[in-house]
Computed example of a mutant assay.
Amino acid sequence: MTKTRSATWSAARQRQALDLSARYLHGASISELARISGLSKGTVLNRLRLVDTPMRTPQQTRLLCADPEQTAARVQLAAEMRRWYEAGASVPALAAVFGCSSRTVRRRLGQAGTTLRSPGQTRALSTDEKSRRELMRSLRTRYEAGASVPLLAAGCGYSTSTVYRLLHQAGTALRPRSQPAPGAERDRSP
């Protein structure tokens, strides 16, 4: 008689599989478990199956998603995404900022009642010279007030390299990367 694979696992791996199973049974999704554990979704599924975790049906998953607390959080997230999108952020930029896929961003924007821009409208928005100048002026003002480039990038939905380019085009005197923002305290511990 051959041993099952779960019987040959180390104690640590068995504990991990049982922990994943407990979290799944308490409502965590496969994606959340993968993000928490650092494993792939397929590995999480395999670990759950090997400790005989009863899997939810699609109906049970929909009911779980209908939890009022989770629904309120999703509505708030969708409203936040809509605010950024209407301010000019693109779907890929929102996906990067909120740590999800572009498909999820589109779905959340739809749930918030947002009409998505066509690719032509997005290109026109990104090349609109007046809004570009306003963005450069706003970034320069916030940067000179002490904001870091990664913070500015997260705030406007652009990459850090794009923010650096916009600051340069705005004629901003950039700080050396090792120099802190004005007024920022430096840790001088030995």
Rank of each mutant, 00 (worst) to 15 (best):
N46M: 12
R47L: 14
L48M: 06
R49W: 09
T53Q: 00
P58D: 09
Q60D: 12
Q60C: 07
L63E: 14
L64S: 10
D67T: 04
D67W: 04
T71L: 14
R74L: 04
R74P: 00
A78S: 12
R82Y: 02
R83Y: 08
W84N: 09
W84A: 13
E86H: 10
E86S: 10
A87F: 09
G88Y: 03
A95N: 10
A95K: 06
F98V: 02
F98Y: 14
T104F: 03
V105C: 02
V105M: 01
R106G: 02
R106P: 00
R108K: 10
L109D: 00
L109R: 01
G110D: 12
G113M: 06
T115I: 12
T115G: 11
L116V: 00
G120A: 15
G120I: 09
G120S: 14
L125G: 10
D128A: 13
E129Y: 08
E129P: 01
K130I: 09
S131K: 15
S131E: 13
L135Y: 05
S138K: 15
L139S: 02
R142H: 06
E144L: 15
A147E: 12
A147G: 01
S148K: 13
V149I: 15
A154H: 10
T160P: 02
S161M: 12
Y164V: 08
R165A: 14
R165L: 13
A173M: 13
L174K: 14
R175T: 01
R175V: 01
R177S: 09
S178R: 14
Q179I: 05
P182Y: 11
G183S: 00
G183Q: 01
S189L: 13
S189K: 14
